[in-house]
């Protein structure tokens, strides 16, 4: 009858040395790049760049985008690309400013309602993706346009300057709170990354997110609640975008339609790609996202310390981004080979 025969493995698991080295470099490229980057800025301007003040600056810049990017990474892992974060953030901040500064509602109420509004926007995104079955990329781009329009209309009916002033007392103090000398936002960022790390690697929810991004069909056939996961990912991305935008607005004491989340190449999508999370879904590691976020923050602060011209600055940012996506595509090709 049929008897089992020992069968050679189709693919040897031990890769030859050069490949292994290449793989190590590609997998840890960003970390190596970060070290090199820090070394360059440190030699160029040791006394300013290596000061504690600058360390906090870097961390504060990281925290500003980092929280959104963290949730963004979750969405990318689940195979969802959200292009509406900038506009969702803007409209959330504007609505917050309207409630808080113009209607003079209490801070807590304004904040909770604004976050609920952001959650609603995420819900609409997920409705478009799940029910109408539109790819997330397009659905979110469309909703983003709508949000931009909403933000502008709220601003224009309440202000002539294109900004809503936000100088009611408790806000800025809360945002600039420090806990044992460390800005609260920085602590919050690290807390968010820790929780998401555990969520992705050690809970069923995380396992399901990876499965959904890796093979939606297989996930569904194995009883994974795909719709709930998409809703979860897009709602949290929207809420974190809203949260970040409110923080930025609160720090700058005004909310506008163009609340920026970075420079020319700002935006969590860019940051997430930069960290090598990849766009295909089903893979990506949150710790890499954190390194990517810090890398970009170091770049921003380093260049402003060195007084780099805006020309060179946007060029460097652009090139770094192109370089990052090229590296990512090479890594993917090597991994799937």
């Amino acid at each position: 009858m049929l008897r089992t025969q020992p069968q050679p493995l189709v693919r040897p698991t031990n890769t030859p040395l050069p490949r292994a080295v290449l793989k190590f470099l590609l997998n840890n490229g960003l970390l190596i790049a970060l070290v090199i980057e820090i070394a360059i800025f440190a030699t160029a301007s040791p006394e300013i760049f290596l000061s504690t003040g600058n360390l906090f600056t870097v961390l504060r810049i990281s925290a500003t985008t980092g929280i959104t990017v963290a949730f963004y990474t979750i969405a990318l892992i689940a195979g969802q690309i959200d292009l509406s974060t900038a506009q969702v953030g803007a409209v959330t901040a504007v609505i917050f400013a309207w409630m808080f500064a113009i209607l003079e509602w209490p801070l807590e109420l304004s904040f909770v309602l604004a976050m609920a509004f952001a959650a609603l926007l995420g819900l609409i995104n997920s409705w478009l993706v799940i029910r109408v079955k539109i790819p997330s990329l397009i659905a979110t781009l469309a909703l983003g346009t709508l949000c931009y329009g909403l933000a502008i209309s709220v601003i224009q009916s309440n202000s002539t300057t294109g900004l809503i002033r936000l100088n009611r007392p408790p806000l800025r103090d809360i945002i600039n709170t420090e806990i044992v000398g460390i800005p609260a936002t920085v602590i919050l960022m690290f807390a968010v990354y820790t929780i998401i790390y555990i969520l992705l690697n050690h809970t069923r929810l995380g396992a399901h997110l990876y499965a959904l991004g890796g093979n939606p069909q297989a996930a569904r056939l194995n009883g994974i609640q795909d719709k709930r996961l998409v809703r979860f990912a897009l709602m949290f991305t929207a809420m974190s975008a809203g949260f970040t935008a409110i923080m930025i607005a609160g720090r700058g004491l005004s909310a506008g339609a163009a609340t920026p989340v970075g420079g020319v190449l700002g935006g969590p999508l860019v940051a997430a790609i930069f960290s090598g999370v990849g766009l295909s879904g089903g893979s990506g590691r949150i710790e890499r996202t954190l390194i990517g976020v810090i890398f970009l923050a170091v770049l921003t602060s380093g260049m402003s310390i060195l007084n780099v011209s805006p020309f060179a600055r946007s060029m460097i940012e652009g090139l770094a981004f192109v370089f990052a996506i090229l590296i990512d595509s090479v890594r993917q090709r090597i991994e799937t080979r």
């Binding site: 499965a211 890796g214 056939l221 009883g223 994974i224 893979s283």
Partner: peptide, 15 residues
């Protein structure tokens, strides 16, 4: 219905 980018264990217990 396997998820190629995950390991054997996670596929075994998928969902």
């Amino acid at each position: 219905a396997l998820v190629e980018g995950r390991d054997v264990v996670m596929n075994m217990f998928l969902g």
